[in-house]
Design a protein around this nucleic acid. Structure first.
Length: 271
DNA sequence: ATGCGGACCTGTTAGC
DNA sequence: TGCTAACAGGTCCGCA
């Protein structure tokens, strides 16, 4: 489900409700997500206070004075703030109950998400330590991409979706950014000029920034933490638009598969 | 080293 | 109407 904008929208949504609050209880109904949620979470988090809520790529980092709960939403995960008498539905796998009787509720039908319970160095966690640059880092630009692409034969679309290169760009925004930059998704990453990578870096930041501003993309089931849908979907140019006219030139949007993922592009505007 | 296909799991939808 | 197959926002792992 969530790419960087949806995770950031979630981060902001829960931050306003649980920052500086003490955890009263943790209820794990289904521990088996992508990896098993450690039992130590339920023992150790109660009594601790959430001191900060940060994001690294698509991971959320809920830090206490001595530990960090790392959450990844996978494809279908979501976090909501609900009242303590709200009935848990199927797929509501984890509740974190706070001292003010609000619950942070994790829901994930496909169970591709994950929760890790670590010390105070979450960025050293094996799943995070090799993550690439943040798209809003001041060092991220066309030169960075151009150098990272080196002589790669890999298609530029799978290249920008590789979290070891840069984080946060999933299938929707990869397609949208390539459209904005006028770059064909199949083009080899190592055969793109610095000038075009500068366009692409700017396009990536633009689509992510706009999506965050709109509260994320609502496709099927993404909602903000208050249950309101994101409003970005109406602004998508190519994603899921196969057969429809290109907003720029009117040519028919094409759909292909790359690395098992759907790619959408205009063969006139993107070369 | 690089890059690809398959895997994880459930729900929804397109197609027959 | 009902069954089946394909597909969905992510990313890890094993193999070529």
């Amino acid at each position: 489900m969530p790419e960087l904008p949806e995770v950031e929208t979630t981060r902001r949504g829960i931050e306003s409700h649980i920052l500086k609050l003490r955890v009263h209880k943790v209820l794990v109904r289904e521990p088996q997500l992508r990896w098993k949620i450690p039992a130590s979470l339920s023992r150790q988090l109660p009594g601790q206070t959430i001191e900060s809520i940060k994001r690294r790529g698509k991971y959320l980092l809920l830090s206490t004075a001595s530990n960090c709960l790392i959450i990844h939403l996978g494809m279908s995960g979501s976090l909501r703030i609900v009242a303590d008498n709200a009935v848990a539905l199927k797929h509501d796998h984890v509740d974190i109950l706070f001292e003010n009787n609000k619950i942070l509720r994790y829901r994930d039908p496909r169970k591709f998400g994950a929760m890790f319970w670590t010390n105070d160095q979450p960025l050293q966690h094996p799943r995070l330590i090799d993550l690439g640059i943040e798209p809003f880092d001041k060092h991220f630009n066309g030169r960075y991409l151009h150098q990272a692409a080196n002589n790669k034969q890999q298609a530029v679309k799978t290249f920008i979706m590789d979290s070891k290169q840069l984080v946060g760009v999933g299938n929707i925004y990869a397609n949208e950014a390539l459209f904005l930059a006028g770059i064909h998704p199949v083009r080899a990453a190592g055969r793109i000029s610095l000038e075009r990578y500068t366009l692409l870096a700017n396009a990536i930041r633009k689509v992510l920034r706009n999506a965050i501003k709109s509260g994320g993309t609502s496709l099927k089931d993404f909602t903000q933490t208050d249950g309101q849908p994101g409003y970005f979907a109406v602004k998508l140019n190519v994603y899921d638009k196969q057969g429809m006219p290109c907003p720029t030139c009117g040519n028919t949007i094409k759909q292909i598969k790359q690395a098992q993922r759907s790619s959408y592009y205009c063969s006139v505007c993107q070369t």
